[in-house]
C-alpha cells in the first residue's frame, strides 16, 4: 500500500533540532574549534594549532585529575545506587500510594534550595568543631577530619545526586508488574532470589539510568570537590577553573572540557547499551 507523505511529523521535530543545534551542537563545535586557538596578550585568536592538546595531554597533573575524577564519580554512582535502593524499595513496595507521593515530594524539596548553600551548610556540619564531631565526642569518638577530604567531597556528591537517584529508582521499581513477583513466590523462590532474579532485572533500566545520572552529575561537579574536598586533589572541573584563572587559557580549558564530554558520552553509551540491551 502506498503511504501518503505528510510534513506534519517533520514539523514537530524542528523545535528539537533547533534546540539541539543552538544549545548543544553549536557550542560544542565552537569549543572544539577553540581548543585549537591561541591566547595572545590575554586575548583568544583563532588558529589551528595542536599546542593546547600537546600541552595538556603531556602533563601528569592532567591525567591525575582525569583518573581521580573518574574514580570519584564511579564511586559516587555506586554508593548512590546502593544507598538509594533500600529507600526506593520501601517506597515502591512497602508504603501506600499517599505516603509514596509525599515521599517523592519531600525528595524534590531539596532542589528548591541552591546546591552551593547546601554545600556551605555541610561545611559547618562536617567541621572538626561542628555538631557531628560534637555528637561523636559524647560517645567517646573522634574528632574526625571530614571537611577538606575525599569523604567531604563524597558527602557533597550524595547531597547532589541521592534524591534524584531515589526518585528514579522508585518510579522504576513501582512500575514492575506485581504478577511477576507473585509468580516467583508461588514457584518457591526465596526473597533473595526474587530480589536478584526478578525485581532488579525488571527495574534494570531505571537502576542504570539512576546510576548514570549520579555519575554525570558527580563527574562534572565543581562545588563538592572544591568547597567540601578542599581541592585536594583537584578534579577536572577544578582544573578548568585553574586553567582559565591563570593566563586566561580558555583553549586549554576547552581541551579539558572535551575530554570530559568524550568520557561522559562513552559512559552514557555503555550504560544505555547495558540498560536496553538484549537480556541473555
Amino acid at each position: 500500500m502506498k503511504t501518503r507523505f505528510s510534513v506534519y511529523p517533520y514539523v514537530w521535530r524542528v523545535p528539537l533540532l533547533i534546540w539541539q543545534g543552538l544549545f548543544f551542537i553549536g557550542p560544542l563545535a565552537l569549543m572544539v574549534a577553540m581548543s585549537f586557538w591561541l591566547v595572545k596578550n590575554y586575548r583568544m585568536e583563532p588558529d589551528f594549532v595542536f599546542k593546547n592538546w600537546d600541552k595538556m595531554m603531556s602533563r601528569g597533573y592532567f591525567w591525575d585529575a582525569y583518573w581521580i575524577t573518574l574514580w570519584r564519580a564511579s564511586l559516587a554512582a555506586l554508593l548512590a545506587t546502593l544507598i538509594a535502593f533500600p529507600a526506593s524499595y520501601t517506597l515502591a513496595f512497602k508504603v501506600s500510594d499517599t505516603v509514596r507521593r509525599w515521599a517523592v515530594f519531600f525528595l524534590i524539596v531539596p532542589f528548591f534550595t541552591s546546591y552551593l548553600v547546601r554545600a556551605y551548610a555541610w561545611q559547618v556540619l562536617l567541621a572538626e568543631s561542628g555538631p557531628i564531631n560534637a555528637i561523636l565526642g559524647y560517645l567517646g569518638l573522634g574528632p574526625f577530619t571530614m571537611l577538606n577530604t575525599g569523604i567531604g567531597a563524597m558527602v557533597g556528591y550524595m547531597t547532589l545526586v541521592l534524591p534524584l537517584v531515589v526518585i528514579l529508582q522508585t518510579f522504576s521499581l513501582a512500575a514492575i508488574d506485581r504478577n511477576l513477583i507473585e509468580a516467583a513466590w508461588n514457584l518457591g523462590a526465596s526473597a533473595r532470589a526474587t530480589l536478584f532474579k526478578v525485581i532488579i532485572p525488571s527495574a534494570r533500566v531505571g537502576l542504570i539510568i539512576g546510576a548514570v545520572f549520579a555519575f554525570i552529575l558527580s563527574y562534572g561537579d565543581f562545588v563538592s570537590p572544591f568547597y567540601l574536598g578542599g581541592s585536594k586533589p583537584p578534579t577536572m572541573s577544578i582544573l578548568i577553573i585553574d586553567t582559565t584563572k591563570s593566563g586566561q587559557q580558555w583553549p586549554r580549558a576547552a581541551v579539558v572540557a572535551i575530554m570530559m564530554i568524550v568520557t561522559l558520552f562513552t559512559v552514557a553509551f555503555v550504560a544505555v547499551g547495558a540498560a536496553y540491551g538484549r537480556r541473555k
Binding site: 601528569g60 597533573y61 581521580i68 582544573l239 585553574d242 591563570s246 593566563g247
Partner: peptide, 9 residues
C-alpha cells in the same frame, strides 16, 4: 603555574 598544578595533584 604548571608546577603549582603538579603540586596540587
Amino acid at each position: 603555574n604548571d608546577f603549582w598544578s603538579e603540586y596540587k595533584t
